[in-house]
């Protein structure tokens, strides 16, 4: 592999990693606080991409209006789901929550088919980000560079929100002891609703930002949800920087793996997770489970 190819692939890998991080960090946040494994997260991602298509392509609005629309729409949908249905399930077994999110997947997949049909769509690069920046020996596509910048910004924003604000302290405390928080007068249900909303909006943003990179087809949610789980598990469940690391490992392994061993592309993420779990059963930055 030449230096040019290596650099180019590294940037593509990083861009993929950051795009995946944005989505996975939402899944991770929701799991960390609500302890709910949200299978519908991939569906939220797909809706984010499709909404961006509708707003930016069909209605002709600027791309970033589409991104914003995706975030707001997914946030609203998630808020409604949490308030109307999900909140009744926190005290039930994990299996029930799992089935519930699986039901969401099924319902939303049919809803997507009714709204957008089964055609394949694409969303072009936003103006100003469609070109490439030359580093002399290699030209890096601007959109990939843009993703490489957005990912860390979102990571830092989430870290500040969760680690540096009063609200974040409440959220972290909610993962430890719900009853205690309620006794202290914190509106725990609203904290949960907010976390589910923010986490799902991140899936929407992730889907919106992915739209220019990929083809929009029914079923695009399925691979993403598995890959998000892989990232979150590799990093250590509930750990923000773990997800960041997991996404980096995922992006680079998949990108370089696809170039070097194209036949094994689909299996590589699972292989990565397998290796990590066999060496560090609780993920790179995760802590052992306690009873």
């Amino acid at each position: 592999m030449t230096l040019t190819m290596f650099t180019l692939n590294a940037f593509y890998g990083l861009a993929l990693a950051m795009n995946m991080f944005i989505i996975a960090s939402g899944l991770n946040l929701i799991f960390g606080v609500l302890r709910v494994i949200n299978f519908a997260h991939g569906m939220f991602y797909m809706f984010g991409a499709y909404i961006t298509f509708t707003v930016a392509k069909s209605w002709g609005a600027p791309f970033f209006v589409g991104v914003l629309a995706a975030a707001v729409a997914l946030g609203l949908i998630a808020f409604a789901i949490e308030r109307l249905l999900l909140r009744h399930l926190y005290d039930k077994e994990h299996l029930m929550q799992l089935l519930f999110t699986f039901a969401l997947v099924l319902l939303m997949s049919d809803a997507a088919k009714m709204i957008w049909g089964t055609d394949q769509y694409s969303v072009g690069y936003p103006p100003g980000l469609g070109g490439a920046i030359s580093l002399g020996f290699v030209a890096i596509p601007q959109y990939q560079l843009f993703l490489c910048a957005v990912g860390p910004l979102i990571a830092i924003a989430m870290w500040l929100l969760v680690d540096r604000t009063r609200w974040g302290r409440v959220v972290r405390a909610a993962t430890q002891d719900r009853e205690m928080l309620a006794a202290l007068g914190v509106n725990v249900p609203m904290v949960y609703a907010a976390v589910f909303t923010i986490g799902s909006a991140l899936a929407g943003v992730g889907g919106a930002l992915a739209a220019p990179r990929i083809a929009l087809v029914p079923g695009m949610d399925a691979t993403i949800i598995n890959e998000c789980f892989i990232i979150v598990i590799i990093g250590g469940l509930g750990n923000l920087w773990g997800s960041f690391l997991g996404a980096l490992a995922f992006g680079l392994v998949v990108q370089f793996g696809t170039v070097l061993a194209p036949d094994w592309q689909d299996v590589l993420p699972y292989l990565l997770m397998l290796v990590v779990l066999l060496i560090r059963p609780w993920g790179l930055l995760g802590r052992p489970e306690t009873n």
Binding site: H94, N226, F229, D266, P281
Partner: peptide, 28 residues
């Protein structure tokens, strides 16, 4: 042998990973 070292979601994800390897072998 490897999966039962873990429990809960970690167990589930490891079973998934191995299953996808089996799928990969069938595919390739």
């Amino acid at each position: 042998y490897f999966c039962v070292r873990l429990t809960q979601i970690y167990f589930a994800m490891l079973t998934l990973a191995f299953a996808m390897l089996v799928w990969g072998v069938a595919f390739k």
